[in-house]
Nucleic acid binder design. Structure first.
Lengths: 68, 68
DNA sequence: TATGAAATTATCGTAAAACAATAAATATAT
DNA sequence: ATATATTTATTGTTTTACGATAATTTCATA
């Protein structure tokens, strides 16, 4: 299971969804969908922009969780 | 810049592209495209299957590289 | 408790890209 | 030289991102 977790880094950077969406260059609505694990895929360009905006690694944002 | 690096984990697990494609459930051709950084996005279902097949973390496979 | 900002959710449409299937070309090892 | 592994190419289908927009919900705070 892949989990999207933007909350931690957003809190760390004190960045709102609104600001992040502007920096990343996708709409607030779509970023919210991604943030709430409703997306089924992601473009590398988007992932890149997020890592850049939050100044973090992919592992900070995406997590692979084994199921039991 | 997002970099896909499957080589290291494949070597570590001694797994061929062929075997990996079977485990992941996508064709050899498409997995090769992904492995050689020709893909522009990825489905979480695929990423999940790769992590499972190689028993590794996302960070082992995807890298965000800052440009200078 | 009323107000406003922030975030979520929904809908519709378009464009992008994954991915299948297949085949051909290339590389690599034995 | 031959088998095996990998890459590349092509065409078609399907999935999904993402935009634009608007309505709804959440939540802080005045």
């Amino acid at each position: 299971m892949i989990i999207v977790n933007l909350d931690v880094m957003m809190a760390k950077r004190k960045m709102s969804l609104n600001t992040l969406s502007e920096k990343v260059g996708i709409t607030l609505a779509n970023l919210s969908i991604l943030k709430n694990n409703k997306a089924k895929a992601i473009r590398f360009s988007t992932l890149d922009a997020i890592c850049k905006a939050l100044d973090c690694e992919i592992g900070d944002i995406l997590e692979y969780r084994r199921e039991d």
